[in-house]
Design a binder for these strands. Sequence first.
DNA 1: TAGTCCCT
DNA 2: ACCA
Length: 206
Amino acid sequence: MNVLPKGVRHIPQRLDRQEQEALVDRIRECVARAPLFAPKMPRTGKPLSVRMTNCGELGWVADEGGYRYQPHHPVTGDAWPEMPHELLNLWQEVSGYDAPPEACLVNFYSETAKMGLHQDRDEDDFDAPVVSVSLGDDCLFRVGERVRGGRTTSIRLRSGDVVVLGGEGRLSYHGVDRIYPATSTLLKNGGRINLTLRRVTKPSAT
DNA sequence: TAGTCCCT
DNA sequence: ACCA
């Protein structure tokens, strides 16, 4: 029996179909203003297989300059679109963290896209959890420990599932090994969208 | 090492 | 494992 690492919480079907559709509408609006861009590996410039954009005050970007959060789109230079209130509500209900998320990374996975095992460690605040929402096709999600080479466990994520990496699970290695094509009807053109909500800065003490 | 490749 |  393979159990998820401590601090990793999988909430199956946290969002019903109607909520998922509403979120997809919000994300479409975001993408219309902040087009998907192609992130690159810092050292090598190798492109990641996902395409991404962000909403919220800060957005995660990856290019030759490194991994970082910045307040503007790397191509258009515009501020990121506002975080949809649905996501602020979800964060409030699920994160157990007082301050709101500052960044929502929107990752689009085609049928062939993957995400290698990695840690979310570009934030200043590791006290806040990372909240992830799956929309569209199923995927095989792998979670490990806080060190490379530790044991990993895999679970299938479906549209509407939410995963929370908090506490001891906050720095767990995780990634997406594969997309299961045509397993959802949510996205007309197929594929998978992952939304990752993160607190970047430590909340100020006022 | 948010990558690929290759092996079990 | 990779050798940057």
